Amino acid sequence: MKKSIIYLMSVCFLVFILSAFSSKSDSVYDHGPLKIGDYAPNFILEGSDGKTYQLSDFKGKIVVLDFWAMWCAPCKKKMPKIQKLHETYSDMGVAVLGMLAMNKGAEEKAKTYFAENEYSFKLLYGNDELTKNYELKFLPTVVVVDKEGKIVYLTTKPNPNEFEDITAIVEKYK
């Protein structure tokens, strides 16, 4: 009996140690569903300009993350309003980022689409880690992050009042 208890305790200890030191990437967000008030997961992504960007590069700014895809008609339909946000607030400490997501292999098409439509906000190329960390299941998705890195706005569906909602959030936190 005593040997069984020692064996069981040893197995439990081993399971605990293995789970504590698993090879899970530190950059993968694993804290349940994202919600307003959470810190936004960091990312490291290539931009259409060839530079690498992290969310932490924009600390001290309000950041509008517009997740979209070339195949997403509602995403493309709202792009002019995203451009207007960029034009209105870029000089006031607001960074607007077009986050190409769930659309592998479309980077050059997206870059061309931005150029043809004269969108001047940054275009970043998403990856599987971004999709997982931001729990992207639907597009368009928009996340607004405050100056400290906390999520202050989150929508995962087309919203006819999105521009006004985001404008109000930006005005509140700028």
Score class of each variant (00 low, 15 high):
residue 14 L to I: 12
residue 120 S to N: 14
residue 83 Q to W: 02
residue 96 V to N: 03
residue 123 L to E: 01
residue 57 D to K: 12
residue 130 L to A: 08
residue 129 E to Q: 15
residue 8 L to M: 11
residue 69 A to F: 01
residue 127 N to C: 08
residue 68 W to Y: 00
residue 95 A to E: 08
residue 140 P to W: 06
residue 6 I to T: 10
residue 127 N to G: 04
residue 82 I to R: 00
residue 50 G to P: 02
residue 40 A to T: 01
residue 93 G to R: 09
residue 106 A to D: 08
residue 63 V to P: 01
residue 49 D to E: 00
residue 68 W to S: 02
residue 170 V to K: 02
residue 100 L to S: 03
residue 57 D to S: 10
residue 13 F to M: 11
residue 78 K to M: 08
residue 139 L to V: 03
residue 13 F to I: 12
residue 48 S to C: 06
residue 106 A to G: 11
residue 80 P to W: 05
residue 125 Y to T: 08
residue 111 K to I: 12
residue 139 L to C: 01
residue 78 K to R: 14
residue 132 K to T: 15
residue 170 V to E: 03
residue 40 A to C: 03
residue 109 K to Y: 07
residue 116 E to C: 09
residue 78 K to W: 08
residue 95 A to N: 04
residue 48 S to H: 00
residue 114 F to W: 08
residue 140 P to R: 06
residue 144 V to F: 04
residue 26 D to H: 12
residue 162 E to P: 04
residue 77 K to F: 02
residue 53 Y to C: 09
residue 46 E to V: 09
residue 96 V to M: 00
residue 140 P to K: 00
residue 146 D to Y: 07
residue 78 K to F: 14
residue 121 F to C: 04
residue 120 S to W: 08
residue 128 D to M: 15
residue 25 S to D: 14
residue 52 T to V: 12
residue 64 V to C: 07
residue 141 T to H: 06
residue 166 I to E: 00
residue 50 G to D: 05
residue 66 D to Q: 03
residue 128 D to R: 12
residue 57 D to M: 11
residue 77 K to H: 10
residue 82 I to A: 01
residue 108 E to C: 07
residue 164 E to W: 10
residue 66 D to L: 04
residue 77 K to A: 04
residue 125 Y to C: 05
residue 174 K to F: 07
residue 151 I to V: 03
residue 19 S to Q: 14
residue 131 T to G: 12
residue 13 F to Q: 14
residue 115 A to C: 09
residue 23 S to K: 14
residue 169 I to G: 00
residue 68 W to T: 00
residue 2 K to N: 12
residue 166 I to G: 00
residue 30 D to Y: 10
residue 23 S to Y: 12
residue 123 L to A: 01
residue 23 S to N: 13
residue 168 A to D: 12
residue 158 P to Q: 07
residue 124 L to D: 02
residue 27 S to D: 15
residue 74 P to C: 03
residue 109 K to W: 09
residue 40 A to K: 03
residue 149 G to F: 03
residue 99 M to A: 10
residue 41 P to A: 05
residue 6 I to V: 15
residue 156 T to G: 07
residue 39 Y to H: 11
residue 142 V to E: 02
residue 8 L to D: 11
residue 80 P to F: 02
residue 21 F to H: 14
residue 91 D to E: 09
residue 155 T to A: 05
residue 132 K to S: 15
residue 112 T to M: 13
residue 101 A to E: 04
residue 67 F to A: 03
residue 150 K to E: 05
residue 97 L to S: 04
residue 6 I to C: 11
residue 102 M to H: 14
residue 142 V to A: 02
residue 120 S to Q: 10
residue 104 K to R: 15
residue 12 C to N: 09
residue 33 P to R: 15
residue 9 M to A: 15
residue 143 V to I: 10
residue 38 D to V: 04
residue 174 K to C: 03
residue 140 P to M: 04
residue 100 L to T: 06
